[in-house]
């Protein structure tokens, strides 16, 4: 077993390690029935919702995806294989994973409370990282077991608000091609989280070259004429309206996740829908991803974006040095632990 020390984080401070701007190399969609397709049919566009809408409306008809089955890296790998077949060239990357895994790692210096467990497989000079499915189910069960504050909305309702906000903010086509009726009836649409558009990007942090797959919510305008130009993705988030200092602190902590998620896929813009305590959409704000670390620095200053990048670069270096042989490895961080552990997974 090897340990990677998170603390003291100060040793990762300073200007950030080299990063490669994420570039979309492939994509895939899950359709409304969550069937996989190697196309962009589930690509959506952003158009703002009306304010004052009750985000709880339609909770009773929410069609929620059952994700208890372990999908591993299936979608991502299928897409990469297809790309390799189409182009006749091999995708070389040292790390291949979902955006969610990288988010957990990157947030580790400033997120002491959440632990994680991942499985890493080394195959032909690439390390494939996926979530340890049992751990995921287990921690979800624990989360649900926690009683929510009295009078506060349930976890389920609150996660519904996020999907509802997406439904309210998305249109199926560019604004010009979308009819007024479609735009105006979004409030009555059944909320369903089956459909997804996932972008597969080539990126790099420090010396590590990576392929990351992750869901992106929407396009701001359209994919650029020049395929090398960055794509104007939009990430949609909801957050409780900020009333006091404590709320600000909570919000800035949330911004850490927002920022990392968008940073990793090269999403330049985040739309935050602020809601009241009981889920009424009050206003929204457009955040430029690149400005978020600065915002936080000028705010409560509870996290540092450069430090996250440097930490990730160092961790990936260490990961590559540690996982040197084929087989399955476990990457684990226990709650509140100052270290990330890597060890060979005996189970396999």
């Amino acid at each position: 077993m090897s340990n990677f020390a998170i603390q003291p984080v100060s040793r990762f401070a300073g200007s950030s390690a080299a990063i490669r701007r994420p570039k979309e190399i492939a994509y895939f969609s899950y359709d409304d029935d969550h069937v996989f397709h190697l196309d962009e049919r589930s690509l959506r566009y952003y158009y703002p919702p009306n304010l004052g809408v009750d985000l709880s409306k339609g909770f009773d008809t929410f069609q929620q995806l059952d994700d208890t089955a372990d999908d591993h890296l299936d979608g991502l790998l299928k897409t990469i294989i297809d790309l390799e077949q189409r182009t006749g060239t091999k995708c070389t990357a040292e790390v291949v994973t979902w955006r969610g895994m990288m988010t957990k790692i990157m947030a580790a210096p400033f997120d002491n409370m959440s632990g994680f467990e991942m499985n890493a497989t080394r195959f032909q000079d690439s390390i494939f990282i996926e979530e340890n499915h049992e751990h995921k189910l287990e921690s979800r069960k624990q989360q649900h077991a926690q009683p929510s504050r009295r009078g506060a909305p349930s976890q389920d309702l609150m996660s519904f608000w996020g999907y509802k906000f997406e439904t309210l903010s998305l249109i199926p086509d560019q604004w010009d091609s979308t009819s007024r009726e479609v735009i105006e009836t979004r409030e009555n649409m059944v909320v369903n989280n089956y459909a997804q558009y996932c972008s597969v990007v080539k990126t790099g942090i420090g010396k590590a070259r990576m392929l990351i797959g992750g869901e992106v919510d929407a396009l701001w305008d359209c994919k650029p004429d020049n395929r090398d130009d960055p794509i104007n993705w939009v990430e949609l988030k909801t957050s409780a309206e900020i009333a006091n200092d404590k709320d600000t602190l909570k919000y800035e902590r949330k911004l850490l996740k927002f920022w990392i998620q968008s940073f990793l896929l090269g999403v330049p813009k985040i739309i935050v829908g602020f809601r009241s305590q009981n889920g009424i959409l009050q206003r929204f704000e457009e955040l430029e991803t690149k400005n978020i670390p600065g915002m936080v620095k000028r705010g409560k200053g509870i996290w540092d974006g450069n430090l996250c990048i440097n930490f990730t670069a160092a961790f990936l270096d260490w990961l590559k040095q540690t996982i040197t042989t084929d087989g399955v490895w476990r990457i684990r961080r226990r709650e509140r632990s100052p270290v990330i552990e890597i060890f060979r997974n005996e189970e396999s």
């Binding site: 952003y46 158009y47 703002p48 604004w175 010009d176 091609s177 009819s179 007024r180 735009i183 701001w220 457009e286």
Partner: peptide, 13 residues
């Protein structure tokens, strides 16, 4: 040339 009706709406952003 758009083939669609121009909607009397403000644009996103």
């Amino acid at each position: 040339h758009s083939v669609h009706i121009h909607k009397s709406m403000i644009l996103r952003g």
